[in-house]
Amino acid sequence: MKLASIACAAVAVAVATPASAAVYTFNTSVGAGSATGSITTDDTIGVLSGANITAFNILINDGADSFTVTNNNGSVLIGGNALTATSTGLSFDFSAQGANYALFQNPFPGSSVNYFCLQTVGCYFPAEAGIGIRLQGELLNSSLSGNVQFAQAAAAAVPEPATWAMMLIGFGGIGASMRRRKQVAAVNFA
C-alpha cells in the first residue's frame, strides 16, 4: 500500500511539472527589413551555446519577401560567449572581442541564404558588430554596439487541462490509499 502511495505521488509530481524551458520573443528592425520571432532555451541563465537552444521560430523580412527559419528547417550555430540569458531576456554583447555570433539559418550554417545573425564578427560581411538578415541572397544589416537585450522573456505557460486532470487523479489515489490505510488500522481484534 505504501508503495502505491509513493507511485501515485511520483506520477502526480512528474505529470504536473513541465520540462524546464524559457521562451524569449523579439521584434527588431534590420535595415529596411525586420526579424520577428521566438527563441526557446533549456532555461540556462548565463552564457548560451548552441546546445542550450531547444527551438526557434524566426520570420525574416527584407521589405518585399519573407521566410520563416525554424529548428525544423534550419540550424543554430553559436560561437564565442556574447549571447547570454537572464530571467527577463536574451542579450548579445556587440562590443565583445573576437568572433562572437549567433546564427539561425536555413537550410544549414554556411549556405548563405535565409538567416538571422547577431555578430561581433563571424556570420556575414561586412565584418562589423550588429544584426544581419539574409533572404534569398539580399543582405540587410544594422550596426550595434554594447550589450543589447534584443529579446524579452515570454509569459510562463499555464499547464494544460490534461496535466491538471492527471495531477488530480494522482492526488486522489494518494488520498484513497491513505483513507484505506486508516480503515485497516482502525480494525481491532480484542
Score class of each variant (00 low, 15 high):
Thr25Ile: 12
Cys117Val: 12
Gly33Cys: 01
Val30Asp: 04
Asn52Val: 01
Ala127His: 08
Thr88Cys: 00
Ala99Tyr: 13
Asn52Glu: 07
Val69Thr: 12
Thr70Ala: 11
Ala51Trp: 00
Thr84His: 06
Ser91Asp: 03
Pro109Asp: 10
Phe108Arg: 13
Tyr115Gly: 04
Ser49His: 09
Ala32Gln: 14
Ile60Pro: 04
Ser29Pro: 03
Asp65Lys: 14
Asn57Lys: 13
Gly79Tyr: 08
Gly130Thr: 03
Ala22His: 03
Ser87Gly: 09
Ala22Ile: 01
Thr84Glu: 10
Leu90Phe: 06
Asn71Gly: 14
Leu77Ile: 04
Gly122Met: 10
Gln97Pro: 01
Pro126Met: 00
Ile39Ser: 01
Ala85His: 04
Leu77Asp: 15
Ser95Asn: 13
Thr88Gly: 10
Gly110Asn: 13
Ala19Ile: 13
Gln119Ala: 08
Thr120Gln: 08
Ser75Thr: 12
Asn81His: 11
Thr40Trp: 02
Leu59Ala: 10
Ser20Glu: 09
Ala127Ser: 15
Ser49Ala: 15
Ile58Gln: 00
Ser66Phe: 11
Ser34Val: 07
Cys123Glu: 10
Asn100Lys: 10
Cys117Met: 09
Gly74Ile: 00
Leu103Tyr: 10
Asp62His: 03
Gly122Cys: 13
Asp93Cys: 06
Gly80Met: 10
Gly63His: 05
Asn73Gly: 12
Asn71Leu: 06
Asn57Ser: 15
Ala96Ser: 15
Ile60Asn: 00
Pro109Ile: 11
Thr54Ile: 12
Gly130Glu: 00
Ala102Asp: 08
Thr54Cys: 02
Asn100Met: 12
Ser87Leu: 06
Ile53Ala: 07
Gly37Asp: 09
Asn57Cys: 09
Gln119Ser: 10
Asn81Met: 08
Gly37Arg: 09
Thr68Asp: 06
Val121Ser: 14
Gly33Trp: 00
Tyr115Thr: 03
Phe125Val: 13
Gly130Met: 05
Asn81Ala: 15
Gln105Gly: 07
Val47Leu: 05
Ala99Met: 11
Leu135His: 00
Val76Cys: 13
Thr84Ser: 14
Asp42Val: 03
Gln136Ile: 06
Ser38Gly: 04
Tyr115Ile: 03
Phe104Leu: 11
Gly50Phe: 02
Asn106Glu: 15
Ser91Leu: 00
Asn114Arg: 03
Ile131Arg: 03
Asn71Gln: 14
Thr44Tyr: 01
Leu135Glu: 00
Ser91Glu: 03
Phe56Asn: 04
Ala102Tyr: 06
Gly80Asp: 08
Ala22Trp: 01
Pro126Val: 00
Ser87Tyr: 06
